[in-house]
Design a protein around this nucleic acid. Structure first.
Length: 960
RNA sequence: GCCGGAUUGGCGGAAUCGGUAGACGCGGCGCACUCAAAAUGCGUUGCCUCACGGCGUGCGGGUUCGAGUCCCGCAUCCGGCACCA
């Protein structure tokens, strides 16, 4: 519209004016380095504000940093960033030294795939995407310390990622260290122990050559190469960590089938930290659900290893080794009627008999003439199954080995089977079959006609034809030496392990597997590892880092048909022969080495970036000790240390968050840092979801063109171009044609309105639907604030220096008290509601006293920082509102002159009284009983009982 | 199957110490201003009932003077794990 049309309202708070105000303050914050937080030491110790870090309480708030994809943001992406920004701004006003910055997690497949398509180097694409994302986010007014930003792809950052890898490679887990709790120690300490005579398991250390010594060390290093079963994904052309494989046995990325193959790959010995990763969850303030997911993922279980010997005469002539099984129910040994080996178990051959024993039931043989033939066929079939197929249907199958072991408790023979319901990857890969107390063993016993013996008295209503896994007294569990009958399960477990002596050992097992750490990709960190002629890996010293990515003719991973099980991984870095073969001096003169050609997984950079924000330019250390201790260090006994707040999506509950905890603990053990957890408090923000609409063909139509209709019966229907469409609810995105972008919001309302709306929609942790038409509510609120402070006709400041009236003071101080409380608990939705109440009161009162407007501006500043700065300045302040002290409620102003007391009869409200807040309870009781509402029920009679909660409530119970 | 979490008006949500259920916002309805519209302001808005009044926090029980809130049982939905011995 032309200005001449509406001269009277030329100073209205429109999207256009908001945009001007926002740009002004964003420029000024940048120019003045408003959000620069001083470090105690190093290059970031000085800031324009001149405050010293050591004079302030540190507060470190983090977001899960973004992957700078080229696809652009939608309104859901900034939710967490706005929340941490609100929290950070609030804490600055409480006088804390707030560190808040944002980096970029920039290695990964999308940039690589884009590079493959365009031929452009992924670094170019990545940097463009980062620049683009940075400008998109700048418009939100996030108060980040720009000096602390970085990308995981920056050579300076890669250098320290590689350095940390070397630390992990050059250490082992000493279970004796840290007073028996266990800790990572330098590998040199282990070598010294071997030199002093510690058993290597492969002969005397002094007699071993370099390659043999390295073989020994590889069993201890926290980063090691091993040939072991891994998840090979031909469709992606790379191997994957267990955490990256779905329950269906497919890749989380791309949904390709994943196969188990034995390959030589890098691993991280995260299993060494299993106990601490479980136990230390008690020290952090995280959502219980995430803690539970991590506990489940680590899967600690306590039980016992039991050893079974071959039955005399039944075994092959060779006399095979004992079979060790893991069980959590050692108490059920008397009910063990058979034994099962996983198809991959190393003792399968040794237990395979020459011929079927006389009387072997037909189903046990799998129809084969000899045990060897039956087992070979069975193993072949098992190997061809994907993990998914292996668990599908859960029908138990297996074949008899022809051999039996002896049950040490009963003396009975237990036939040994091979069956694929037993997994090689857990426990010992062998289980004792106890049909009566295990549903899986029950199913197998049913299928193969094996007997069962109950060893726990089932509950009375328990059906006879079911296994019983509940509590109860032991039965049928006695022999000449031990009698468990009548005892509870827990006691029986301990007793049986003790009785078995040499044949048993109490132990702990974990579901967690070591972390497969190498990938066959281009766009990742190269390993800081070279191999000598003997194939011995050598870590590169810090002064030779970073190892930069080589130029290669083709970035793409070599992928295969999704079901091509026999394909071999082929790392793209191997395509540059000049890079792979290198001459280096690692302390013993220049020699020729071959570089490791795998790259690190995506998770590497995010496993330690929480440290780098604290000291982003340090080129002598990943993080300087003084800066780490200040920002992340423990603040008292029992405190783990770590960032004060970490906000991000719950999808990283077991991947990133487990890896980051693991690396953090290794660095702690090695003495590089003082904190032993990376994140003290974790909040998982909810998702913003959106409605999408499909036409009669099931094709998505643009959601912003859909019209809503409500008929007289109140039914709502939707049409697009006059045709009915169906509504569904889900993610926001281009493919569902329901994407709303932050830019749309800036253009229509301004960034402050967008921020306020996102914070007011509901609790941070809940998911909620996006509704563009509701954003106007936030805009109206900010417009009212603006109108209180600024005359819309003249543009003059409208704040008065007259004192506020009593009622305004009361509302103001109630608001301050409530808002503070809510801010402390991240309840931003109710903060907004309370500020609206205050603003509505001032609007209704028709006055804007400075006494109320200044606290209002400060309370509004974390949520709508640009508008708050603008009116703060117009109220005569030269300095940014960022560090204005947060208001404190004056208790003496909170008391009202009268309060409403409800009069209840049998808990139902029957009357209301206006009373003095200080009223005497006895007086209030008399007033309540005399009230019309109460007398209607009492009719003059004395009440049976009266509960008085002065001054708010009286509940009367009449006599009848 | 196991483990977490949820269920409150047309919609998002408040009430978290057992004490006025529905704050605040969207949407709806009405009014003012306006030639008109937008914007803004004011009023109203859980359901049933003309009203008096009654009923209401997923369902069924219980504890209590009083229950959205605590206890027992059930249903539905969301998330995670799932042959882990």
């Amino acid at each position: 519209m032309a200005p001449s049309e509406q001269p009277a309202r030329s100073h209205r708070y429109t999207a256009e004016l908001a945009g001007r105000i926002e740009g002004k303050w964003q420029d000024r914050w940048e120019r003045e380095e408003t959000f620069a937080a001083p470090n105690p030491a190093g290059d970031l110790a000085q800031t324009p504000r001149g405050k010293r870090a050591t004079d302030m309480e540190p507060a470190y708030f983090m977001d899960m940093f973004p992957y700078p994809s080229g696809r652009g943001l939608h309104v859901g992406h900034p939710l967490g960033y706005v929340a941490t920004d609100v929290h950070a701004r609030y804490n600055r006003m409480l006088g804390k030294n707030v560190m808040h910055a944002l980096g970029y997690d920039a290695f990964g497949l999308p940039a690589e795939q884009y590079a493959v398509q365009t031929g452009q180097h992924p670094r170019v694409t990545t940097e463009e995407n980062i620049a683009n994302m940075r400008s998109q986010l700048r418009r939100l007014g996030l108060g980040h310390d720009a000096r602390r930003t970085f990308a995981t792809t920056d050579p300076e950052f890669v250098k320290w990622t590689q350095w940390i890898f070397v630390q992990i490679f050059d250490s082992w887990y000493d279970p004796q260290a840290a007073d028996g709790r266990g800790a990572a120690r330098p590998i040199t300490e282990l070598i010294a122990q071997f030199e002093a005579g510690r058993d290597t398991g492969r002969g005397a250390w002094a007699e071993l050559d370099a390659a043999a010594r390295e073989d020994v060390l590889q069993d201890y290093r926290l980063a090691y190469v091993s040939e072991s079963p891994v998840n090979w994904c031909p469709g992606l052309g790379t191997v994957l960590a267990n955490e990256e494989v779905t329950a269906e046995g497919r890749s989380e990325r791309g949904n390709f089938p994943v196969f188990t193959r034995r390959l030589r790959q890098w691993n991280m010995r995260i299993t060494a930290y299993a106990d601490r990763l479980v136990d230390d969850l008690d020290a952090v303030d995280w959502p219980e659900s995430v803690k539970q997911m991590q506990r489940n993922w680590i899967g600690r279980s306590t039980g016992a290893l039991l050893r079974f010997s071959p039955a005399a005469g039944a075994a092959s002539d060779a006399g095979p080794d004992d079979i060790e099984v893991y069980t959590t129910r050692a108490d059920t040994l008397f009910g063990g009627t058979f034994l099962v080996l996983s198809p991959e178990h190393p003792l399968v051959e040794a237990y395979t008999a020459q011929r079927w024993p006389a009387g072997t039931p037909e189903p046990w043989t799998g129809g084969a003439d000899t045990p060897a033939a039956a087992i070979a066929a069975y193993r072949r079939a098992a190997a061809a199954k994907t993990p998914l197929e292996r668990q599908e249907g859960k029908d138990k199958t297996g074949v008899f080995t022809g051999t039996s072991v002896v049950n040490p408790a009963t003396g009975e023979a237990m036939p040994v089977f091979v069956a694929d319901y037993v997994l090689m990857g857990y426990g010992t890969g062998a289980v004792m079959g106890v049909p009566a107390e295990d549903p899986r063993d029950w199913d197998f016993a049913q299928a193969y006609g094996l007997p069962y013996v109950r060893t726990v008295q089932p509950a009375e209503d328990h059906p006879e034809d079911r296994p019983y896994t509940g509590e109860g007294e032991k039965i049928n569990s006695a022999n000449a030496e031990i009698d468990l009958n009548g005892r509870p399960i827990a006691e029986a477990k301990a007793a049986i392990v003790e009785w078995l002596g040499e044949r048993a050992e109490a132990t702990t097992q974990y579901r967690l597997r070591d972390w497969l750490f190498s990938r066959q990709r281009y766009w990742g960190e190269p390993f800081p590892i070279v191999y000598d002629e003997a194939g011995v890996p050598h870590a590169l010293p810090a002064d030779q880092l970073p190892v930069d990515l080589p130029e290669v003719p083709d970035f793409s991973p070599r992928t295969f048909a999704a079901d091509d099980v026999d394909s071999e991984p082929e790392p793209p870095l191997g395509r540059n022969a000049d890079w792979v073969s290198v001459e280096l001096d690692l302390g013993d003169g220049p020699r020729r080495y071959r570089r490791e050609t795998n790259t690190m997984p995506n998770w590497a950079g995010s496993s330690w970036y929480q440290l780098r924000y604290a000291d982003p330019h340090n080129d002598a250390a990943s993080v300087g000790p003084e800066n780490e201790a200040y920002w992340l260090g423990p603040r008292g006994a029992g405190d783990s240390g770590g960032a004060d707040l970490y906000v991000g999506g719950v999808e990283h509950a077991v991947l990133h968050l487990l890896y980051a905890r693991f690396w953090h603990k290794v660095l702690f053990d090695l003495g590089h840092i003082s904190s032993w957890e990376p994140f003290r408090k974790l909040i998982n923000q909810g998702y913003i979801q959106a409605y999408a609409f499909t036409d009669a063909r099931g094709v998505y139509v643009p959601a912003d063109e859909v019209e809503e209709h409500t008929d007289e019966a109140g039914n709502t229907t939707y049409t697009h171009g006059g045709q009915p469409v169906a509504r569904e609810y889900g993610k926001m995105g281009k493919s569902l044609k329901n994407m709303v972008t932050p830019e749309d919001m800036y253009a229509a309302f301004g960034a402050d309105t967008f921020r306020v709306y996102e914070m007011s929609m509901g609790p941070l942790v809940d998911s909620r639907p996006w509704e563009t038409r509701a954003v106007v509510g936030a805009q109206r609120f900010l417009q009212r604030v603006w109108r209180l402070a600024v005359d819309e006709e003249t543009g003059e400041t409208a704040v008065s220096d007259e004192p506020a009236d009593g009622e305004t003071r009361r509302v103001l101080h109630q608001t301050i008290a409530g808002v503070r409380e809510d801010m402390d608990h991240f309840r931003y939705n109710t903060v907004v509601a309370k500020l609206i109440v205050l603003v509505n009161h001032l609007t209704k009162a028709g006055s804007a006293p400075r006494e109320a407007m200044e606290p209002l501006a400060i309370m509004l500043a974390p949520l709508a920082p640009h508008l708050a700065e603008e009116i703060w300045e117009r109220m005569g302040h030269d300095h940014t509102i960022t560090y204005a002290p947060y208001p404190v409620a004056d208790e003496s102003q909170l008391r009202a002159e009268a309060v409403t007391c409800v009069v209840q009869v049998r808990g139902k409200v029957r009357d209301r009284l206006e009373v003095d807040p200080e009223i005497d309870p006895g007086e209030l009781e008399a007033l309540a009983i005399a009230s019309d509402g109460a007398q209607k029920f009492l009719q003059g009679a004395a009440p049976l009982k009266v509960i008085v909660r002065a001054p708010k409530l009286v509940n009367i119970v009449p006599a009848q």
